[in-house]
Design a protein around this nucleic acid. Structure first.
Lengths: 115, 115
DNA sequence: TGCATGTGCAACTCATTGGTTGCAGCTGAC
DNA sequence: GTCAGCTGCAACCAATGAGTTGCACATGCA
């Protein structure tokens, strides 16, 4: 993944960052993302078998991730396959890196003042 | 900010990622972090004047950010100054970049299979 | 000393979230 | 056509979070 555009990332829809960071704030959801990345697309039923949760609970997590733009689903016969769509992660990294930039420049200013 | 160590970031305390992503999931909290970065340390009372919220509400947000390791406070006379401590952001970036790496390698594998 | 200002703590409300159970509706295969 | 398996929807519960109000406590300064 390359560094996203700075200004655009900071001005990106605040709601998008909300839902993304919120989606990633849950360990179960991060686990689901990692599983989908490692083993490829899967259904809510299959994913639920690997957790102590109900299919419905897993499904809700998947829907949260999808609402954040991190997942997409596709109907295959009578199954629904979920897969990761990681472009939105760039927004998160963009915000963090922009914020870090502000901190870095502030530190630089302080260094110059105190030297 | 430099790229954090890969394995350590993925194996970092899950709770740390929880609290950090959770803290960043709220637009008010991201705004507070940005304000503190741009204008330097400030008190909850001062920060509250720039928002439609109560001092107590702002204080709760500051405490959430501090619990996530993103802020620190210091008593100055009868005032309490909050400032940003951005090292933990590296964990967040680490997780995201690690996850992106998994995705990238998966895409590479798929490319090789489909070509 | 007394007062204004700033912080700390507790209780309360309201909305959201994570999780469950139950049941109905599709769909593929025999 | 029927049946098993998977998905979709709704209701419900417990816990957490965001925000408020009210009041007590500490501190700097005239």
């Amino acid at each position: 993944m390359t560094r996203p555009q700075s200004k655009a990332a900071r001005q990106a829809d605040s709601g998008a960052l909300d839902s993304m960071f919120g989606a990633l704030a849950d360990p179960t959801r991060r686990l689901l993302v990692e599983r989908l990345l490692l083993k490829g697309p899967a259904t809510a039923t299959v994913l639920a078998e690997t957790t102590p949760l109900t299919r419905q609970a897993v499904l809700k997590h998947l829907q949260v991730l999808e609402a954040a733009g991190l997942l997409a689903h596709e109907r295959v016969g009578r199954e629904v396959h979920y897969r990761v769509t990681p472009q939105p992660l760039a927004s998160a990294v963009g915000w963090i890196l922009d914020t870090a930039d502000q901190w870095d420049s502030r530190i630089d200013r302080l260094r110059k003042l105190t030297q």
